[in-house]
Amino acid sequence: MWLRLTRSPAFRTLGPFVPVIALWWVLAESGLFPQAFFVGPDRVVLEFVELLRKGILVGYLGDSLERLAYGVGFGLLIGLPMGFLTALFWRLRKAVWPILLFFQAIADIAWLPIVIVWFGFSLTAVTFVIVYTIVFPLMLSVVSGVEQVPKELIRAARSLGAGRVRVFFEVILPGALPSVATGVRTGLGYGWRALVAAEIIVGTSGIGFMMFDARRVGDVSQVFLGMVVLGVLWYMLDALVLAPFERATVERWGLVRSMEDDR
Rank of each mutant, 00 (worst) to 15 (best):
P9F: 11
R12G: 12
T13Y: 15
L14E: 09
G15L: 11
F17C: 08
V20Q: 12
V20E: 10
I21W: 10
A28K: 10
E29S: 14
S30L: 12
G31C: 13
L32D: 03
F33N: 12
Q35T: 08
F37S: 08
V39E: 02
D42Y: 13
R43F: 15
V45N: 00
E50R: 15
L52N: 06
R53N: 09
R53D: 13
L57E: 05
Y60R: 12
Y60M: 14
G62H: 05
G62S: 00
D63T: 15
S64R: 03
E66N: 15
E66K: 15
E66D: 00
R67S: 00
R67W: 08
A69R: 12
A69V: 01
G71I: 03
G73D: 01
F74G: 01
I78R: 10
M82T: 08
G83E: 00
G83A: 01
L85C: 10
L85D: 10
L85R: 13
A87G: 14
R91W: 13
K94E: 04
I99F: 14
L101S: 00
L101P: 02
F102A: 05
F103M: 01
Q104T: 15
W118T: 12
F119A: 05
T127A: 11
I130D: 00
I130N: 04
I134A: 07
I134C: 01
F136M: 04
L138M: 03
M139K: 07
M139S: 04
S141T: 11
S141F: 13
S141D: 04
S144K: 13
S144R: 14
V146S: 12
V146P: 06
V146W: 12
V149L: 13
P150G: 11
P150S: 10
R155G: 10
S159T: 10
S159Q: 00
A162L: 07
F169M: 02
E170H: 10
I172L: 04
I172A: 06
T182L: 05
G187H: 07
G187P: 10
Y190K: 09
W192V: 06
A194L: 01
I200Q: 11
I207P: 05
M211S: 07
A214T: 08
R215L: 06
G218T: 06
M227Q: 06
V228T: 10
V229P: 05
G231S: 03
D238C: 00
V241L: 11
L242Y: 05
P244S: 15
F245D: 01
E246T: 07
R247K: 11
R247T: 09
A248Q: 03
E251Q: 14
W253F: 15
W253P: 04
L255I: 13
L255V: 15
S258P: 11
E260F: 04
D262V: 14
